[in-house]
Amino acid sequence: MSLQYKINVLAALKEKGYSTYRLNVEKIISHSSIQKLKEGKMLGADGIATLCELLECQPGDILSYEPEPKE
């Protein structure tokens, strides 16, 4: 199973007024989660829920599923 971000999450957060500095200082999202987003790694369910709350969207708006190729 391969989940991927459909959008640049950090850019979308910045458009909503959430810079990485603000996210970190106000403890909205942990530093490790911000680093995962920079690297394109997937957050856990709680992190995805926080992103959806901040971006006012549903998980399907920011995530896509790509099935693994069958051998």
Rank of each mutant, 00 (worst) to 15 (best):
L13T: 00
K16E: 01
I34Y: 06
A12K: 11
E66L: 01
K70R: 12
L55C: 14
A49R: 15
E26T: 05
K38L: 03
G40R: 10
L3D: 12
T50Q: 09
G40S: 07
S33N: 13
I34G: 10
I28A: 05
N24V: 00
Y65Q: 12
K14V: 07
E56V: 10
K27S: 15
E66G: 08
E53G: 08
I29H: 00
G60C: 00
L13W: 01
E71F: 07
T20V: 13
I62Q: 04
L3T: 12
P69N: 13
P67D: 06
L51H: 10
G47Q: 04
Q35I: 01
I29N: 01
M1L: 11
L51C: 05
K14P: 06
E71S: 14
Q35H: 04
K16C: 02
C52L: 15
E26Q: 09
D46M: 11
P67C: 04
K36M: 08
A45S: 08
I29Q: 06
S2N: 14
L10D: 06
I7P: 12
P67M: 10
Y65W: 14
P59T: 11
Y65D: 09
I34D: 04
Y21A: 02
Q35N: 09
A49D: 14
C52P: 15
Y18T: 02
Y5Q: 15
K6G: 13
S64T: 15
S19V: 02
Q4L: 08
Q35M: 01
I29S: 03
K27E: 12
S19M: 05
L55P: 15
Q58I: 00
G40L: 03
L3C: 11
Y21N: 01
Y5R: 11
V9Q: 07
E26D: 10
C57E: 11
N24M: 08
I62Y: 12
E68G: 10
V25G: 02
I34E: 01
M1R: 11
P69D: 14
S33G: 04
N8F: 06
A49F: 14
G60W: 08
C57N: 11
Q4I: 13
K38W: 06
L3H: 12
Q4D: 15
K6P: 10
G44I: 09
S2I: 14
K41C: 06
V25N: 07
Y18N: 02
L55N: 13
Y21W: 00
A11R: 03
L43Y: 12
G17A: 09
T50R: 13
L3A: 14
M1A: 15
K36I: 05
K38S: 11
A12N: 03
I62P: 07
E26F: 05
T20Q: 13
E53A: 08
G47T: 11
Y65G: 09
E71G: 13
R22L: 00
P67Q: 07
Y18R: 02
G60H: 06
L63C: 03
I48N: 10
G47K: 10
G17F: 06
I34T: 03
M1G: 14
I28N: 12
T20K: 14
K16T: 07
K27I: 04
I62H: 09
A11P: 03
Y21V: 01
K27Q: 07
N24L: 00
V9A: 12
N24R: 07
